[in-house]
Simulated assay, not measured.
Amino acid sequence: MPVILGIESSCDETSAAVCVDGVMLSNVIANQTIHEAYGGVVPELASRVHQQNIVPAVQQALSNAKVNKNDIDAVAFTRGPGLLGSLLVGVSFAKAFALAKNLPLIEINHMQAHILAHFIAEDKPSFPFLCLTVSGGHTQIVLVKDYFDMEIIGQTLDDAAGEAMDKTSKILGLPYPGGPLIDKNARLGNPEAYKFPEPQIPGFDFSFSGLKTSILYFIRDNIAADPDFIQKNLADICASVEKRIASILLNKLQKAAMQYNIKDIALAGGVSANTGLRQGLLEMGAKNGWKCFIPKFEYCTDNAAMIAIAGYYKYLKGEFADQHIAPMARMPF
């Protein structure tokens, strides 16, 4: 029964988790509130706070799992992609812990881990399945043939869906982080109130830069006519934007599912916590006869549980890294 310690520090969440024989016993996430004052993640500040949080997070994860550090069989860590300074903290801690305890290291690709988060739960997708992976920095449709045999069949050509939501929240004057606030306000609004364009991109690829510009001009023009336009219509604006982003994502996913004739469909990444997107997937799945898989909220955003479960499957394959490994801000899928 391998005991895997997972470490995640790719952006602004410091997280540690313990997995025993594929069963998740703990998942501790330390969020960073310092970035709220700046309206976004400040990389230098993020790396400093990681240094403060990582030891307490690991100690809490071990305590919650009722596991002693001497029981750990391997240390899995996020190598990339992510903010280099943030990654460096997690990688350095993992290497030091492994060296001190003479344990093997397991490097994990952050985006692959988001997909493998589906294997934390008892109800798991069957291979091959399609996974729509949506975060602040990535938007991908991935054909998952095995645990580490994955092919990106569609991705954003410019901005990610999460970035489009964050940009919209800034335009609307909402505080950081804006994604959850877009979601909260959208629940109170009419998604049919305003129409935003859907980019016509061939194949399974995405583009969100044009949508962002459209939203910016829409808000600018309406504020010129009525300075209180946002305050009067915030819920409807959020609901309409959320619906358009979800439709862009789901229409491409449906197209891919039909072409590949796949019925097991998964959703992953931070934006998969969005209520409108989750509900949209379930409704589309019901119409198409899909079996849909959506992780629990705690496994959608960046977390170490997904790193630990990915590490578990790599441990079974005997795929280990050495002490010379370095973090990668951009890491090949």
Rank of each mutant, 00 (worst) to 15 (best):
A246R: 13
D205P: 04
P180Q: 05
R244H: 00
I237N: 14
P128A: 12
T133P: 04
T133G: 00
G276D: 07
P295F: 01
A164Q: 01
A113K: 06
R278I: 00
L83F: 12
A61Y: 01
E44S: 14
Y194H: 12
Q155R: 14
L105Y: 09
G82K: 09
S207D: 10
A310K: 01
D221S: 15
A246W: 01
G154W: 03
D71R: 11
C238E: 06
L172S: 10
F218V: 13
I325H: 06
S214N: 13
N303S: 02
M328K: 15
Q259T: 11
I201W: 13
N185H: 14
G136T: 00
I309T: 15
M258Y: 11
I72M: 07
E242T: 02
P125T: 03
K255P: 02
L281H: 07
A164S: 13
A286Y: 08
F196W: 12
P327E: 11
E44L: 07
D322R: 10
S209F: 03
F218D: 14
L211M: 02
V67K: 03
P125K: 05
D228K: 15
I72K: 05
D221L: 14
G39S: 06
E8T: 06
G210Q: 04
F204V: 10
A161P: 01
P125I: 08
D205V: 05
I248S: 09
L62K: 00
T213M: 03
G178V: 08
A235C: 11
A117W: 02
A96R: 03
M306Y: 06
A273T: 08
F204D: 11
L143M: 15
A57P: 04
A65M: 02
L281E: 07
Y315Q: 00
Q59G: 00
N109Y: 04
L249S: 03
L188D: 12
E242Q: 14
I201C: 11
V28T: 11
K69P: 05
S10L: 05
D236H: 12
I237G: 14
G189N: 09
F129A: 02
A100V: 13
Q140D: 13
A286Q: 14
V75K: 13
I182A: 00
Q259Y: 07
D226G: 12
P199Q: 11
G22N: 10
R220S: 12
V134K: 00
K232Y: 09
M24D: 07
I108K: 00
K291Q: 15
I171T: 12
Y312A: 06
P56S: 06
P197I: 07
A235Y: 03
Q259R: 13
R220Y: 10
A186D: 08
I309C: 06
N31K: 13
S247W: 01
P191I: 02
A256W: 06
L25Q: 15
